[in-house]
Nucleic acid binder design. Structure first.
Lengths: 152, 152
DNA sequence: TATTGTTATACTCTATAACTATA
DNA sequence: TATAGTTATAGAGTATAACAATA
């Protein structure tokens, strides 16, 4: 968790605090960008997933790590705003696939672009070799995490 | 935002996706640990702040970036569970300072310890020089972010 | 029988607006 | 007047349990 860096400012953080603080900075950037467009983090995650997929409710529940009943409400609210729509599946009439609308796609691309700008700003003071090291190491952790998640 | 790494697994991520995924991995670790102890991320952040301070409601609202009325409810629920208590301030009778109880302190230390374990697990496949590079770079970003925040 | 999705219900989290008490 | 805090209210997000439709 980390210890919200107290009153005094230490010159260095240990690895746990450093990663915790970095992750808060990144998530806060995304959260604030989302908020300016009246989106919650969950809505952004939903739209992000739909950028390259049209999953059913149960698939979404697994991807978002939510109960399927929570996803029903989430999709309801996004649909009411015209960001997504439900489509019937040709092969299984129980399934309702969720897809981005044009307006939803525009919104998610806008958030993604603004977020990318914020991340680059966060890296402003670093040398290009530090940025490349960070990219390589973070990328490796993320990809190992991904394959670990696949196993479950 | 990042693009929840789609169906195919790329060998490398760009810096934005890498940081986004890393930050999700870290936040999910914290969120899951918190959830096993029936704590929300906000409750964990509240308890984390109280580890070394006894702020008033308005201070907490600023630190958590929430409205003060939201903090009232947050503190109410934590107090009902015996995790925090309100104390009157000697110098300003309007202020009610929020402090951890013993039980709250035990809980937050437990979450912190479990989270630290998770972070180390995340780093398992890395060389020690990669871990040190990551610590140094993340630490620098976090500390610059902190001083930027102070300015506001 | 198992799976997909929705509904009913209840609780947490959050903000806005209006209020009380103190400074 | 200004600040600290609470209350009333409303809406989003979440889970559990029970249900209907389809497989």
């Amino acid at each position: 968790m980390s210890h919200d860096a107290g009153s005094e400012s230490p010159a260095e953080l240990d690895i746990v605090d450093a990663l915790a603080q970095l992750s808060f900075a990144v998530q806060n950037a995304l959260g604030r960008r989302a908020a300016t467009l009246d989106l919650s983090m969950t809505q952004v995650r939903l739209l992000g997933i739909l950028r390259d997929r049209t999953p059913g409710i149960v698939d979404l529940a697994r991807l978002l790590e939510l109960d399927k009943s929570s996803v029903t409400g989430l999709v309801d609210r996004a649909a009411k705003r015209g960001l997504v729509r439900r489509e019937s599946s040709p092969d299984d009439r129980r399934v309702s696939r969720v897809a981005l609308t044009e307006s939803g796609r525009e919104l998610v691309e806008a958030v993604a672009a603004e977020f990318a700008t914020d991340v680059h700003k966060l890296l402003d003071g670093l040398s290009s070799s530090d940025v490349e090291d960070l990219r390589r190491i973070a990328s490796r952790i993320a990809l190992e995490e991904l394959s670990a998640g696949m196993a479950s």
